[in-house]
């Protein structure tokens, strides 16, 4: 598999002493690659060093063979970026905004703009002002400006946060289609379901450290056969349970508490086995047991 992104020992320290990234290394090939982590894990900082907004304090990143620090312009012509927060220009129409971004990428072809708007299902709203769009539509316009010119690498930071289920499904379809034909989509998110649906490979960041990098299947294998559901009567039992085992999630109903746990040593024979999910693996990861 061709490597499109190489991240080598990347560290990022801010002037206030905060280490946002600490010696991160992994590679990304074609397809959709997930970057998971809690808020503050360093995902956005890593995205920003990848797309050349922030210089790393140490280490190198190569995009399609080009060094982000020494060959910045070569990198920038090969990436499309959708930031986490992008308000765009409210007074411009959808067409004008995407055309503006296209021109700044050196694309002076209105047909290309129409084509990309059609792909994101926004062509019929081309004349509408950005301020008149819903959140999901704005996000689609954001993706349109990122994919115009069909860059080899697409970096999307939390693209589905705050979207309704229908928009999220639409977005996943968009990203999945884009990643065909050898392109790479780097998807940064804290929504595990998105990664599960789209990504064969992923990396997990925790407090600036790389906790895991590899396939979703291998990550899930770590928890396969060990996830169980235990019924509890009250909160006191839950507190006791948390001292003995990793609790992955809890749900409450009128019968009590259902705790989803990692029972690695079969301490709870009364618990019911459950099918392990990527979310279980991720939460377990955040508990600190899986190493990269």
């Amino acid at each position: 598999m061709h490597t499109n992104i190489e991240i080598n020992h990347i560290t990022k320290k801010y002037k206030n002493g905060v280490t946002a990234l600490d010696d991160i290394s992994f590679t990304v090939g074609s397809g959709v690659f997930g970057l998971l982590g809690h808020n503050g894990a360093g995902k956005t900082t890593l995205m920003k060093t990848l797309v050349t907004i922030l210089p790393p304090s140490a280490g190198t990143i190569r995009i399609c063979g080009y060094d982000t620090q020494k060959q910045g312009n070569e990198v920038r012509t090969r990436i499309g970026y959708l930031p986490q927060e992008l308000a765009m220009y409210p007074s411009l129409s959808v067409f004008d905004f995407v055309n503006y971004m296209a021109e700044l990428k050196g694309i002076r072809n209105k047909e290309a703009v129409r084509e990309v708007l059609e792909q994101v299902e926004m062509l019929e709203y081309a004349k509408r002002k950005i301020r008149e769009l819903s959140g999901g539509m704005k996000r689609r316009v954001g993706i349109a400006q990122a994919i115009i010119g069909y860059p080899q690498i697409l970096v999307v930071d939390e693209p589905t946060a705050g979207l309704d289920p229908e928009e999220r499904v639409r977005f996943r379809g968009l990203l999945s289609r884009y990643a065909r034909e050898g392109r790479t989509v780097l998807l940064s998110t804290h929504i595990v379901e998105d990664v599960f649906q789209l990504c064969e490979e992923l990396a997990v960041l925790r407090k600036g450290h790389l906790f895991y990098a590899g396939t979703s299947a291998a990550l899930m294998k770590q928890v396969k056969g060990k996830v169980k559901i235990l019924h509890l009567e009250d909160e006191r039992q839950l507190i006791d349970l948390q001292k003995k085992s990793i609790v992955l999630s809890t749900t409450y109903d009128r019968h009590g508490i259902h705790a989803r746990i990692m029972d690695e040593n079969a301490l709870f024979p009364q618990a019911t086995s459950a099918m392990a999910t990527l979310e279980d693996a991720y939460v377990y990861c955040m508990g600190g047991k899986i190493h990269a």
């Binding site: 920038r76 970026y81 992008l86």
Partner: peptide
């Protein structure tokens, strides 16, 4: 800067 447009501009070959 507030709307994220500047970050976006910085990722372009501009």
């Amino acid at each position: 800067s507030k709307t994220g447009m500047k970050s976006l501009f910085m990722t372009l070959a501009m």
